[in-house]
Computed example of a mutant assay.
Amino acid sequence: MRSAITISITPQARRGPFVFHDGLADGIEQAAKLGFDAVEIFPPAANAIDEAELQGLLDHHSLKVAAIGTGAGWVIHNWSLTNPDPTFRQRARDFIRAIIDVAAGFGAPAIIGSMQGKVDVDVTREHALEWLAEGLEELGDHAASHGQPLLYEFLNRYETNLFNRVAPTVDFVRGLRTKGVKVLADLFHMNIEESDLPAAIRAGKDWIGHVHFADSNRQAIGCGHTRIEPIIAALREIGYTGYLSAEIFPQPDALTAARQTIESFRKCSAS
């Protein structure tokens, strides 16, 4: 398994669960100094990333891109794949598609989390799941055409009422026609929803494509009550070799959170 740390370049997400917020150059330099393998980026839109500049920074610091998030489409525009208005659903798909294209240029997947939306008062669950499936089918195929998976992240009950746990999410994704979608397992969301995290990880065998490395309080691993050792054992058991990416709050500050993360990662790797 490999380590990654989050960088947000979206001003509207300044209070979000991302470690570095002062630009790609600063975040990448800090990540490299601490010994991370990669960065996960949260941009306001695909065209906010200067691809040549980013590649130069990555090359200079010998880092990779672990993934690129799409959540700014929800944060800034309130677009989602389950919006009852087909115009806004199309805007959401176009926004995500553009980020898939940029991410693929760095050999990385895109993430769909908050842009999945939710079942609202004017939307039945049946319709919401139908629209979600349509979006994932189209975008999963598009990601697969680049040789990358599309990462679908189930969220906790306070953020969506679509999917909140590993097993139902895997069942839904398995039922899609496209084979281009993988599941993102975020340990913070799982701490809220799962009764047994290692068992949930095992239930996601062959489908988990990315892991958000966060403690129960959405701080760095070691700052909450998550028992990380059994989770790492379960990930090894299912043959997971991807990233453990810290999508966490920068508390008490970004550098301390990042340092705690890499120290926890190294302990897990050595155990």
Rank of each mutant, 00 (worst) to 15 (best):
M1H: 12
R2I: 14
R2E: 12
R2Q: 15
I9S: 04
P11Y: 11
A13T: 08
R15Q: 10
P17A: 12
V19S: 00
F20Y: 12
H21T: 01
G23M: 09
L24H: 03
G27N: 08
L34K: 07
G35P: 02
A38N: 10
V39F: 06
A45Q: 13
A46K: 01
L54V: 11
H60E: 14
H61Y: 15
V65T: 02
I68W: 03
I68D: 06
T70G: 00
V75T: 10
V75N: 05
V75K: 00
N78W: 10
W79G: 12
T82D: 00
V102Y: 05
A103R: 06
G105K: 06
A108S: 11
A110C: 11
I111R: 01
M115W: 07
D120A: 12
A128W: 01
W131S: 02
A133G: 12
E134I: 07
E137D: 07
A144H: 08
H146M: 05
Q148S: 08
P149T: 03
Y152T: 01
L155W: 05
Y158W: 12
T160H: 04
T160L: 04
L162P: 05
F163D: 03
A167L: 08
T169M: 04
T169N: 01
V170Q: 07
L176V: 07
T178A: 04
K179I: 05
V181N: 06
L184K: 02
L187F: 10
S195T: 14
D196I: 06
L197H: 02
P198D: 06
A199M: 12
K205T: 15
W207N: 01
V211C: 10
R218C: 12
R218Q: 13
R218N: 09
G222M: 08
H225F: 11
H225M: 11
T226E: 04
T226A: 13
R227E: 15
I228E: 01
E229Q: 12
L235F: 02
I238D: 04
G239D: 09
L244C: 10
S245C: 12
S245M: 08
E247S: 07
Q251Y: 11
P252E: 11
D253T: 02
T261M: 00
C268A: 15
A270P: 09
